[in-house]
């Protein structure tokens, strides 16, 4: 009987700890991705992705602080995904920006280009 109570107690303890750990881990992951993107200068080529990742990460931290770990993790994952996507997008946007400068001098330059699927991340 004592063992059963101990087992239940341990299970309750670990389950209660799952949410915070996962949320915290997701936030750390997103933070790392975002930092890496900024360090490599990808924020200049992918302003949408970086700003959105930053926004989701801030929201994730806020929610984690209010013990809403599920949504915090969801937002953190989204932030990490957006930050990571700049790895592929940034070189492409840089190439396009350069070619715009040569091919179409009259064209406004310095604008980002949506990903190939034509959709960014976010709430859509």
């Amino acid at each position: 009987m004592r063992m059963v109570v101990l087992g239940l107690g341990l299970a309750a303890f670990f389950c209660a700890g799952c949410g915070p750990i996962q949320a915290s881990s997701a936030i750390t992951r997103a933070d790392d991705s975002l930092r890496e993107a900024r360090t490599r200068g990808w924020d200049k080529e992918c302003p949408y992705e970086i700003t959105a990742a930053d926004g989701y990460l801030t929201a994730a931290r806020d929610l984690a602080g209010r013990a809403e770990f599920d949504v915090a993790r969801e937002f953190a994952d989204k932030a990490a995904q957006l930050a990571s996507s700049t790895r592929d997008l940034a070189p492409r946007n840089a190439r396009l920006r350069e070619s715009r400068g040569k091919a179409a001098p009259g064209d406004p330059s310095g604008k980002a280009v949506p990903p190939a699927d034509g959709r960014s991340g976010g709430t859509r």
């Binding site: 949408y48 929201a59 937002f75 604008k111 949506p114 709430t123």
Partner: peptide, 20 residues
């Protein structure tokens, strides 16, 4: 969306996060 993405990407990102 594409207009915003090209011309006001940061505003688009902020709006999307705020909606979420």
């Amino acid at each position: 969306h594409d207009q915003f993405y090209a011309c006001a990407p940061k505003a688009l990102a902020r709006a999307e996060v705020a909606i979420a």
